[in-house]
Amino acid sequence: MSLSCLAVAGSAGAAELELQGRRLVVSGTLDGSKVKAFTEHLSSGTVRTVVFEDSFGGTAEAAGAYADAIRESGVQTEVRGHCMAACAYAFLAGKTHRFGHGLQVNGILVPVATRPTAAELAVRWRGEEARKTLADFTPAPANADAARPIETNATAPAPKDNWQPDHGVLFTASPTLFGRIYNTYYCDGTQGRDFSKCERLSDADPYKLGVLTE
């Protein structure tokens, strides 16, 4: 299996939640539509692990809400399949975070504004640093444009997140006969969903960087 497996991605709808025993499976786009239900599930004390399954993005605001709920409840997180952008930041908030077992290729793409240096990679997604980097992509407050003249009969568009689709650092795990092979890539966004065009990063083991903990 290769990076081409990650490129086969259907259109993702709104977030969906499914409680499976003590595991809460989250799929779809983290757009905020299920934040309240998600928080209630975690507040109940029943959930031990949040499993993100084929979640292809969402908003920075929703990512922060999911991450806060995960962090406050102290649950573990797991990825099965794809976990992109907003999903990635929610995933990193887990007490422990891991890739799921099975024959699927697992991939997590964490947005970045620019190509990170080796020094930045070493600390970027550990503890409070993960919150700081998420804040880099949060839309500016609505009052930031207060000084601008108000146009009549015009509908102001909602502020957009600053991250670009498919631009970030991609961590993958591919199953083989001899176990899983882990790789890390920098994707500048021009590759679209053809992640085989991303640049492979050396010395960027996801365990050493704190992206995976078990």
Rank of each mutant, 00 (worst) to 15 (best):
L92V: 00
N162D: 11
L24W: 00
H97V: 10
P111D: 00
D194C: 09
P141A: 00
S11V: 08
Y185P: 02
P159N: 05
Y182D: 09
V79Y: 01
Y66H: 03
V112D: 00
G168V: 05
R180I: 04
N183H: 15
A173M: 13
A63F: 03
G189A: 05
A158R: 13
T138V: 12
A86D: 10
D68T: 13
V51M: 03
T114Q: 09
P149Y: 07
K132M: 11
L177I: 12
C5T: 10
G127V: 06
C187D: 00
S174F: 08
Y207L: 05
L17T: 05
C5P: 00
F178A: 13
T152D: 15
G45F: 03
S11A: 09
G21A: 06
P157Y: 01
H97W: 00
T114E: 15
A69V: 00
A12I: 08
Q164P: 04
C5S: 14
R80V: 13
G13A: 02
E151V: 14
F171D: 07
A122G: 07
T172Q: 05
R180Q: 06
A144N: 14
F195I: 01
S202E: 15
F137Q: 02
L177T: 14
A122S: 15
Q191N: 13
E16W: 00
L134Q: 05
V105S: 01
L177R: 14
E40K: 15
L177P: 09
P139H: 12
E129N: 14
V8F: 10
H41M: 08
I108V: 15
T114H: 04
V211R: 04
Q191A: 11
D161F: 04
A14K: 04
